[in-house]
């Protein structure tokens, strides 16, 4: 189960409100590469991950993404606080303001509401982990684009932290994929066809083990 800790993962303290910037950063809450989708992706995928270590990895990264959602929301909250409707309109926030006032609602930078179709849980470990690797790079690119547009140092500091975490997650998922591939190399009936079965769904087949003293590199192919 989940429990709350009343502290952000990394501090958010923004001196100057800026609704225009808030709208761009909103994409990392509810956009196609955002933290909400990231968290839902990993926390939903973990149930059918074949290795418990990787179920743990998805739990840990999925939980961290919830903390990132909170940080992105904190940025938006501080960037839009204390602005008058006139200021919000002048900063290009009127269309969001009409429906949500200064409330936090997960949409992309273009105003498209969050959609679970932005992520997948295929129930196939190889597919899911490749999805996760791509997702981390998509989020990294989005943070890079935000950094191209944002000149507020308080905001940039937070965005840089979040961007760095995408790279760390990408690294860990790469190692996770390698763990699965090592299992396949060890146990799959046909090492040359790793896609012969779905490691998340089909029972892991057991390849006949070589006799003791069999020369290394002997073919283990069945039949």
């Amino acid at each position: 189960m989940f429990q709350y800790e009343k502290a952000l993962q990394y501090p958010v303290k923004i001196a100057r409100p800026n609704a225009k910037l808030a709208k761009m950063i909103m994409s990392q809450l509810g956009g196609p590469n955002g933290e909400l989708g990231a968290s839902m992706r990993y926390l939903n995928q973990r149930y059918t991950m074949p290795l418990r270590e990787l179920q743990g990895l998805l739990t840990d990264i999925g939980t961290e993404e919830l903390s990132h959602m909170e940080m992105v929301s904190a940025v938006i909250c501080q960037l839009t606080k204390g602005l008058t409707p006139e200021q919000l309109e002048a900063q290009g926030f009127a269309d969001y303001f009409v429906d949500h006032t200064a409330g936090i609602y997960p949409v992309s930078a273009a105003g498209v509401p969050f959609n679970a179709a932005t992520f997948q849980s295929t129930g196939d470990a190889i597919t899911d982990l490749n999805e996760d690797l791509a997702a981390e790079q998509k989020a990294r690119t989005t943070y890079d684009n935000i950094l191209r547009l944002a000149d507020d140092p308080d905001v940039r500091d937070v965005i840089r932290f979040l961007r760095e975490r995408e790279i760390v997650h990408y690294q860990r998922f790469g190692e996770g994929l390698r763990l699965i591939q090592e299992q396949l190399a060890k146990y799959a009936p046909d090492p040359e066809n790793p896609y012969a079965f779905n490691t998340s769904f089909d029972p892991m087949p057991v390849r006949p083990q070589p006799r003791q003293g069999a020369p290394a590199g002997v073919s283990l192919r069945r039949k």
Binding site: M1, Y47, R52, E53, Q55, G56, T59
Partner: peptide, 9 residues
């Protein structure tokens, strides 16, 4: 003992 034992589900 933490990561390779049954998860709550």
């Amino acid at each position: 003992a933490w990561s390779n034992t049954p998860w709550p589900w």
